[in-house]
Design a protein around this nucleic acid. Structure first.
Length: 390
DNA sequence: AATCCACCGGAATTTAGGGCAC
DNA sequence: GTGCCCTAAATTCCGGTGGATT
């Protein structure tokens, strides 16, 4: 959290009333702190790879991979933010006579493929990140985007583009991103970030950096640091915190989701500490092999509305996809037709955001038996986050 | 006016299980 | 008892529409 934010929050809070929750967003599993904890070696390895830029050269394309919640996004986002500040680029430099003619300059762009999940969107987001002015996102074709982007990096300008979250169900493979940008200009270097290593022959052509899951003690450090900003001092015992870290098995996302959920529960109860009972409930709310909340929140608004209604349904209303569809359709905040809601539920289930389980027991009447749709993420954390962030 | 992408809605297809005839 | 057919629900697929821009 930035210093001014801290001060602002203090002022808004007014007095020094002792409260359990200081700043819930500090425990947000989808947000990354400015200085990632415990990822020094990874940072170094990525910097090693990017080293040519400090000599004015363009590094080769590369791929970073590691399991969910290993801090990949945290490292890459902060790294690129700092790089674009430290390394001067064409647009931030005021032209002077001292500028060596022809000396290449390098720009940096961080793109989240979840928000840019088509080639069009990828190019658009890249151009947007590299340009001052905003770029129209409609009424212009892919070809026109390529032209503008190529012009942007022509001459002596280079750009390193990080494309995060490649290879997920709603995005594309690393090679797709690399090829899309290579087709625009040879002045691009692409750094893809995903969960899985490259396969087969591409693995030999593209350098890779593997990010291991967090060690237990590193994850504890992260949780302690986040909790110290998020909740009152001593609200979480060390024992409870390390239990969460052990349970999460190196996955910072799951650990934070559990703590976030636990905190919302404790706060609604008016408790003054987050005891084991809350943390257990928080952990229970996080499904095994669940999908990350980042993916959930990257969905379009219409899907958020559906999910928001969906997570409020009781067991009876989620007995089948049809039942859930009906219940969601009767929610006033959802304006989609039943046909679309139904399709959305199937769509989300394809993406792994909703899971469908077949009910063995209740086989009533003819026809194909129903499957019960259930959210594949912590609904507890989802509810808290969607109110504050979305 | 023409072009372009994203989003929606509904139609078309597939499927699992029970009923019925043999 | 076995296998085919029927039903209703589950699941998938595609063409139309909208809003924005040049």
């Amino acid at each position: 959290m930035r210093l001014e934010d801290r001060i602002t929050r203090r002022r808004q809070r007014g007095g020094t009333r002792r409260r359990l929750v200081r700043d819930l967003s500090a425990l947000d599993p989808t947000a990354h702190p400015d200085e990632p904890t415990g990822r020094g070696p990874t940072l170094e390895r990525i910097l090693d790879h990017l080293d040519p830029i400090f000599d004015g050269d363009l590094p080769p394309n590369a791929h970073i991979y590691g399991p969910k919640g290993a801090g990949k996004s945290a490292v890459v986002t902060t790294l690129f933010e700092h790089l674009s500040r430290v390394v001067p680029s064409q647009q931030s430099v005021i032209y002077t006579t001292t500028r060596t003619a022809g000396a290449p300059t390098t720009s940096f762009a961080y793109i989240d493929a979840r928000d840019a999940s088509t080639e069009f969107a990828l190019l658009h987001a890249t151009l947007d990140a590299l340009s001052e002015e905003s770029i129209p996102s409609q009424g212009v074709g892919v070809e026109a985007l390529r032209d503008r982007l190529a012009r942007r990096v022509s001459y002596d300008e280079r750009a390193v583009v990080a494309v995060d979250h490649v290879g997920e169900p709603e995005t594309y493979e690393a090679m797709t991103a690399i090829e899309a940008l290579e087709a625009v200009s040879p002045n691009f270097s692409v750094l893809t970030v995903g969960r899985t290593p490259l396969d087969g022959e591409t693995a030999e052509r593209i350098q890779s950096v593997s990010v291991p899951k967090y060690e237990r003690h590193s994850l504890v450090d992260i949780l302690v640091a986040r909790a110290s900003d998020g909740v009152a001092r001593n609200a979480l015992t060390h024992e409870v915190t390390s239990n969460v870290a052990a349970w999460a098995d190196g996955d910072a996302h799951d650990a934070l989701s559990a703590l976030y959920g636990a905190t919302t529960l404790a706060a609604t109860d008016g408790a003054d500490t987050i005891g084991a009972e809350y943390v257990d409930a928080g952990m229970d709310a996080v499904p095994e092999d669940g999908c990350s909340l980042g993916r959930v929140f990257a969905l379009p608004d219409s899907r958020h509305h559906v999910l928001r209604a969906f997570v409020e349904l009781d067991d009876e209303d989620t007995a089948s996809v049809s039942a859930a569809t009906e219940a969601i359709a009767s929610t006033p905040t959802v304006s989609l037709s039943e046909a679309t809601i139904r399709r959305v539920l199937y769509e989300l289930s394809d993406l792994g955001i909703v899971r469908r389980v077949s009910e063995r027991d209740s086989t009533d009447g003819p026809g194909r038996p129903a499957t019960r749709p259930i959210p594949n993420f912590s609904t507890l954390a989802f509810r808290g986050l969607i109110d504050t962030n979305h």
